[in-house]
Design a binder for these strands. Structure first.
Lengths: 349, 349
DNA sequence: CAGCACGAGTTATACGAATGACGCCAGGGT
DNA sequence: ACCCTGGCGTCATTCGTATAACTCGTGCTG
């Protein structure tokens, strides 16, 4: 009789569980939420749990959220991030922390389409997300979409221009410093840099990495030498051509800091073509730690890793208010990944 | 007066809209859902829509889903897929089609942890997902998690062993055929293959690509020659060593089909070291179309692309029943991406 | 023995939206 | 005078859960 209501219905509800266990729906709720300490006897509690198992009952998240007003959902909006090679790592970091804190990620990629992006945010608000992580495909300075102005939001892998919400992005300057410092520490004094953007570009990556390079030189008392600096576009060919150019100059460097790994790959090629060996004849440090490239170069490329997971975790952490922060800009440290492309400067140099 | 209920409340509800417009909640619902044709006059309709705009009302997805029993959510469960370099592309394809059909993706990566995976699926059932896409990190044969047995599910980038649910995976055999055929069509008759797994491995990729290679040879009337086949592990070093080995043999090939792009990269290095030029002295075809590698090799690597987006779209399409299918196995075509690493065989060869 | 505290539940209601079943009024046909 | 039909809306209920408020019986205290 208690099972009378069964039949062909969809998912069992608390009422089904209650009638199977011979109690009221309220009691089921109390047991399942560990609420009302001591309001249900252990015997009853067991009967209820048995019924839950027998029916394979699982709570209806919608009813629960409707009642409670909270959803356990977190929005992740991105512009084409899901297709960039490292995209997954941002999502992964966010995912991990979300899960650890009992949340789930509702992710939508706008593929750069503003209308779609707005629709996505709208949808997320319909789902009463706890907050939205706005992830960028590359490090840039951006303006927050209007739709995100009045709900909790954080910006990931970019810097929000107006300081309205916390931003999390790689500390490019410090990364550049770390890379250069690593070469200086190995005894090199003629350290070149091949940057990945023209000098007048306003992307944080190139600007920051260059600034770090200069700070490291200055700190080490090595004079900045314009002749050791080149500007490319960040692709393999640039690395190739500019390295050739550098080595042909009057004062060839003994080490090169390449603004990214692709450029470093080009440098490898150029040096190989010139019959120079890495790291003995010239040391190289890259940037980005591209997982499909850096470890496979020969020798493995010493480079600086972008902290995707860490950025994402920090961003989510702040969004969830676990760590309510005043500061809005959060540069996250990029760490050096040593492989085989750096050697000590030759003593007789 | 109509606004009396405003104050510090959270999100506006249909009642708020209704009272602002001076109608009943039911009318608001009718207008917003375009239901009850002719049950609401145009004037009233306009008043309601104005109120909606003024309050920036958006429907509560939970209430709606609770009432309707449907959620518009689709689960995406993966094992570490979110961190693999191509992961995003699977998610991207799924995402696109989901969005086009008015759904949203609830994605969780289990990072290979079975308990976590089960919890994730459980959670998805709580959210009454329409179905679950179970995505694999690499093409393999897998068993469906028990928790997915009794809800709609499809397997992506893998083949489910027991034929319980539709599976979508790359058609490796045909891909191998296409690659080899491309070389044969260019006039090559001594076409080598460097596979990416030992002969006794049971991964579909290596088996299929090899089978395709043999079928193409057979179809072209070129006899299969064991001396032109090598087995590696799919990494750069293997490509390097095995290519060197192949070229040193008594009957060096004029073209090599490499089981993946990394292997092809190794082949590039070996050939370069031997002073042979690509494609003039030896043509190369790869497999995978790794976006961070294939286009940057010099010359660009002609390769076969894995159909991530297409697989994901087809999988979702089937899951949503747009195309209710009987067949459970869906090999998806891998297409050739021509770049610069293939040339016609020299006539005097 | 009145009174109270406590254990072990139950009842009733709210959350926000969708919808089948009504209500009400004006006009038209007979 | 009566009924019917259409147009325009409203009422009441339902979805599944959480929880404040209440009930009911016991045992204990003063």
């Amino acid at each position: 009789m208690a099972r009378g209501a069964n039949g062909a219905s969809k998912q069992p509800t608390m009422w089904d569980v209650a009638s199977l266990a011979g109690v009221s729906q309220a009691s089921v709720s109390l047991v399942l939420n560990d609420a009302g300490r001591g309001r249900v006897s252990d015997a009853t509690r067991e009967r209820i749990l048995d019924a839950v198992r027998e029916l394979d009952y699982r709570t209806n998240a919608f009813a629960k959220s409707l009642r409670s007003g909270e959803s356990g959902l977190i929005g992740f909006v991105s512009d084409e991030v899901a297709s960039a090679p490292f995209a997954g790592r941002l999502l992964k970091g966010a995912q991990e922390l979300a899960w650890e804190t009992g949340h789930v990620i509702l992710s939508v990629d706008s593929f750069g389409d503003d209308a779609l992006e707005e629709a996505a945010i709208d949808m997320m608000r319909s789902y009463r997300v706890r907050g939205v992580v706005y992830g960028s495909m590359y490090h840039r300075v951006l303006r927050l979409p209007a739709a995100l102005q009045d709900i909790p939001a954080v910006v990931l892998n970019a810097r929000e221009a107006d300081g309205k919400v916390p931003s999390f992005f790689p500390d490019e300057e410090r990364g550049g410093y770390t890379a250069t410092r690593h070469l200086l520490d190995a005894g090199h004094t003629r350290v070149a840099m091949i940057n990945i953007q023209p000098p007048d570009s306003d992307l944080p990556a190139g600007i920051g990495r260059m600034a770090g390079y200069r700070r490291a030189l200055e700190e080490a008392g090595v004079e900045f030498d314009e002749r050791l600096v080149r500007y490319g576009g960040g692709v393999v060919e640039d690395g190739l051509a500019l390295t050739r150019d550098l080595m042909a100059g009057p004062a060839a460097p003994t080490a090169i800091f390449c603004g990214n790994d692709r450029t470093a790959w080009g440098a490898y090629r150029a040096l190989e073509a010139l019959g120079l060996r890495i790291p003995d004849d010239c040391s190289i440090v890259g940037f980005d730690d591209q997982e499909t490239l850096a470890p496979y170069l020969d020798p493995g490329l010493t480079t600086v890793a972008l902290p995707f997971e860490q950025m994402a975790r920090s961003a989510l952490d702040t969004l969830l208010g676990t760590r309510p922060d005043e500061v809005s800009d959060h540069p996250i440290e990029c760490s050096l990944v040593p492989r085989g492309s750096v050697a000590s400067a030759k003593v007789h140099e």
